[in-house]
Design a protein around this nucleic acid. Structure first.
Length: 256
DNA sequence: ATGACTGACATCGTCAGA
């Protein structure tokens, strides 16, 4: 018996609700999908999914950001913000389902807003580190899934895809990610595919997908007992070749 | 040196994304 969950930065749920619904129908084994950048207020989240029998938890805001879960079975809201991250942006929602806790996160990009913008990114990492400690102490299996806006290692980006001083490869961003690994979490994709060139994002510009000039910035970090149950990780690259796609593709994790 | 793609908006140029 296995359990699958997925994460997908959708870049506007209102523009791509049909893509998400089709994807859910094509992936009947995926129990729960975490979305980022829904780019709408909570009340504007498409009713389509509940009409189709799905259960949704949404934390939205006007214009930007916003995160949501779409689930085949009922799920329980744990929190709609990251404790200790003092910012009104809708970038985190946490739910429990079948004894598993899932944190759905959208980390700040960190390239805009100057020094303060980058600081916000680092303070999100600090709060996520503290959340990791809290959940580790609670002892339940958990995962943090979402758009981390970090290429953890040089093999996680195509050569030349970013300028050398980009916030996505900044040493402080990478340190924020590595601290979560030091705390005991497992990068699910790298646990099973340590060296493969796998990306989850391709820019809309300059034919980035055609040139495979991509980034691996969408990640699933697993708690120790969940990592022990890890079976499979798939990045659904095909989704980027569709009509009017998101610039990110889904990442699907299967555990026993 | 510039513009490139896309989405949202108290839209028709500007900001944010990564």
């Amino acid at each position: 018996m296995s359990f699958s969950f997925a994460t997908w930065n959708i870049n506007s749920i209102r523009m791509r609700a049909h893509l998400v619904l089709e994807w859910l129908k094509q992936h009947p084994d995926c129990q729960i999908l975490a979305l980022q950048e829904i780019k709408c207020e909570t009340e504007q989240f498409p009713s389509l999914f509940e009409e189709e029998g799905f259960h949704c938890l949404v934390k939205g805001q006007k214009s930007y950001n916003g995160v949501a879960f779409i689930s085949r079975t009922p799920l329980t809201l744990v929190t709609d913000h990251l404790p200790g991250f003092d910012d009104p942006a809708a970038r985190y929602i946490e739910a429990s389902i079948n004894g598993l806790t899932l944190g759905n996160l959208y980390l700040p990009n960190g390239n805009s807003g100057g020094e303060a913008g980058f600081k916000t990114k680092i303070s999100f990492f600090d709060a996520l580190y503290r959340r990791t400690q809290t959940l580790l102490e609670a002892g339940q299996p958990f995962a943090f899934i979402g758009d981390y806006n970090v290429c953890p290692h040089d093999r996680d980006l195509a050569p030349g895809a970013l300028s050398p001083d980009d916030a996505l490869t900044h040493p402080k961003s990478r340190e924020g990610f590595r601290r979560l690994l030091w705390a005991g979490l497992t990068d699910a994709l790298r646990a099973l595919h340590p060296d493969e060139r796998i990306y989850s994002f391709w820019d809309y510009q300059a034919a980035a997908f055609q040139r495979n000039s991509g980034l691996r910035i969408d990640h699933a970090l697993l708690s120790p007992t969940l990592a022990d149950r890890l079976e499979k990780v798939v990045v659904d690259r095909e989704e980027r070749a569709r009509e009017k796609p998101s610039d990110h593709v889904p990442l699907i994790v299967t555990v026993r």
